[in-house]
Amino acid sequence: MPRSEDQELLLRAGKGDRGAFGLLVERHHEAVVRFCYRFLGRVGCDAAEDLAQDVFLSAFKAAPYYQPQAAVRTWLFRLATNACLNQRRKWRVRRVIGLGGSERMEDVAMDDSGADASALRNEKGASVRAAVGGLPGGQRAAIVLRHYHDFSYTEIADVLDTSVSAVESLLFRARRKLRSQLPAFEIGNSPQVSADLRAEPF
């Protein structure tokens, strides 16, 4: 099977070619930062970017061991998912223990300046953000990968190291939970569903 351009770049990076690694970062960093931002929930863009930097540093370190069977995008997002899960776990443990340094979630969250604040002022976006952030890790990863990064079920299964049917289940439960939590779906806010809407193709 011919290797993709990304795979060639990563293999070269594994041999120490920093230029190739730089090109790879240039191609994927925006997606990884956005993924971290959405996955971590209540953090500012800077915290998401810091974590994304760590993801790429891990990628550079792991590049010599990369097996070209896996798609580079899937491989990178698996690293990113693990990094996000670990980060949230650390925050949670600190919260449970009642200790926390400067990296507590609350401390890095919600800087009220600039673009973050303007994004939060968008009430609808903020409620969606809170609802997505409240999903369990697997469901959150699945919905973010599917909806915002257009991953196929098979790709999500590869990232989460699970089966396609498990991904279907994760997405089903995630959507059900989101519907139950978003104000737009509360009784009274939901418009009457017409027969036309029901027949609406997706």
């Binding site: 925006e30 968008n122 953000r129 997505v132 909806h147 978003l182």
Partner: peptide
């Protein structure tokens, strides 16, 4: 729900 999710944008990087 898909349209609602679209309202969750990320700040510029």
């Amino acid at each position: 729900l898909g349209r609602e999710l679209d309202t969750y944008s990320t700040p510029p990087i």
